[in-house]
Design a protein around this nucleic acid. Structure first.
Lengths: 110, 110
DNA sequence: AATAATTATAACCTTTTGGTAAGTACTATA
DNA sequence: TATAGTACTTACCAAAAGGTTATAATTATT
């Protein structure tokens, strides 16, 4: 009988943790998802909410998230511009991850 | 009445998500925690399990994790060397995060 | 003697990531 | 006429992260 009753499969290309991280790693990604959360948020609101992020990174990340179907974008064709972001069905499914990150931070770090 | 019933505080230095990420972001960190999981794992086992990681990154991450008290290290003074790693109490508390990452990957990506 | 096994360490280099600063477009307002 | 507000874009640069290769130490095995 082995010591390790619960044996993890190796962490290769098919590893689900690796797959998730390839999408969600990055300095700002999960913080942006956390801020959008279940709300409808404008670009400018996000910029203020995610303290310290540069405009370049913010739209770069938003574009990436839209491309990967985690976030949907709605542009009103007005002047001045108005663009709203929200989580898609798929994006909402990342919230449990974000919640666990928040809980861990709250209970052990902050 | 506002549209957003659930208002998130801004994501500044005190943001718990940010705090967690400052510890756990990085290409390999969460995968290593995932592999160690509830087991006692030797360095060489980890190297094989976390496919593609370089030795440099593996010990660098392990040292970081030990320093931050997420992982404990037990060295047997034998030849050839034998070193075992396991999660501390604090480290075990990251497993819900890892589990959510795994679940998201499993259900939506892999 | 030489090789294998194990857990590292160090020097060097490349790639990735992120930051800075400036500019665009259009209108309302002062 | 100048400024402010909004959502971007681009070019350039700096820093962080990660990869490669070589090396160490010690013993058992071949």
């Amino acid at each position: 009988m082995e010591k390790n009753l619960k044996i993890n499969p190796a962490c290769d290309e098919r590893c689900p943790v690796r797959a998730s991280l390839s999408l969600l790693s990055g300095k700002w990604t999960l913080m942006i998802l956390f801020q959008i959360n279940e709300n409808t948020v404008r670009y400018g609101e996000l910029k203020r909410a995610v303290t310290g992020i540069s405009e370049k990174m913010l739209i770069q990340e938003l574009n990436m998230l839209v491309e990967n179907k985690l976030v949907s974008k709605k542009a009103y064709h007005e002047i001045p511009p108005k663009v709203e972001y929200r989580l898609t069905e798929l994006g909402l499914k990342t919230l449990p991850i974000v919640d666990q990150l928040a809980q861990f931070g709250l209970e052990n770090l902050v």
